[in-house]
Design a protein around this nucleic acid. Structure first.
Lengths: 154, 154
DNA sequence: TTGTGTGCAAAAGCTTTGCATGTTG
DNA sequence: CAACATGCAAAGCTTTTGCACACAA
């Protein structure tokens, strides 16, 4: 059953978050776990405001400040990943259990697609070596036009 | 002489900008050319506010609105390139005559370095093909720590 | 002369901060 | 119960917009 799997993942990420908060000496508040749960129940890419609205819609009593605060904490323990897709707006995606991937952004419809290519890892390794730079992370975005859904007017 | 070369480039980019404005039916205002000139006299990466302050310092009478407007025009004709290096702030760099390159950003000191790797072109080609996506541009940033200047405390 | 571009200031959009109150450890 | 987290609203920062005036075509 699909939902069972989702719940399993939610248990795992809560556990991981819990350990992170403990390790760093932060408090385990209900808001933090609720936000994490809602993120993992939902899909794909979102921004802070959308998440805030979502929480409000579900009648949770949270503030923007807490949303931003929690997103920061979750990013710090790799439960979500921060992105910028060409706009001055931070977008997030859940990252637990996801394999490394990069993004294709359609300049027409704004949709975000994902892809993997091992060459990016090679670039990181080689460049870190050559330039005496310890690379911790990267961001690769390809921009263009999706010839599928978008061009057929969907 | 170094300065002579700079002036030659400035003449070339003004010419290119002029043709672009003509083609698109925009007016050739002194502000637009002055901003272009100041960008090409200066170095590397900058943001809109820094450029605005720079113009003010030089006693040019310009507004932020015109700076933003002109940056947009220059980006549209490939005389400058827009970037976001992990902050919600658009940064720019002159791009005329520069070969394709990507960026390494030091998470400690914020400095931006450049590198080239042909593999990125392969990724663009292959992914565009596989995913039926016409890739027009990309952005690849590597984040980490520069073991040189930064770690020795400079 | 006509209408686009400009300067200025105000507004908008995303994010952070200050403060009083609530909750965790 | 002490310190940290929260909610709320205000402030901050980057970017955009509205309007009257200036100037390119």
């Amino acid at each position: 059953m699909e939902e069972k799997a989702v719940n399993q993942v939610i248990d795992q990420v809560k556990e991981k978050f819990s350990r992170h908060l403990e390790r760093e000496g932060f408090r385990k508040t209900s808001e933090r776990f609720t936000i994490l749960e809602e993120i993992y129940k939902r899909t794909d890419h979102f921004d802070a405001e959308a998440l805030y609205i979502h929480m409000k819609t579900k009648n949770y009593r949270v503030s923007r400040a807490t949303v931003y605060n929690t997103l920061e904490l979750l990013a710090n323990c790799d439960l979500i990943k921060k992105h910028q897709f060409g706009k001055n707006l931070t977008q997030y995606e859940k990252s637990f259990g996801y394999k490394q991937h990069d993004h294709l952004i359609c300049e027409d419809c704004g949709r975000v697609f994902e892809f993997c290519d091992p060459r990016i890892q090679q670039i990181k390794d080689v460049m870190g070596d050559v330039l005496k730079f310890s690379v911790t992370q990267h961001s690769l975005n390809l921009y263009g036009k999706c010839q599928g859904a978008c061009e057929s007017g969907i």
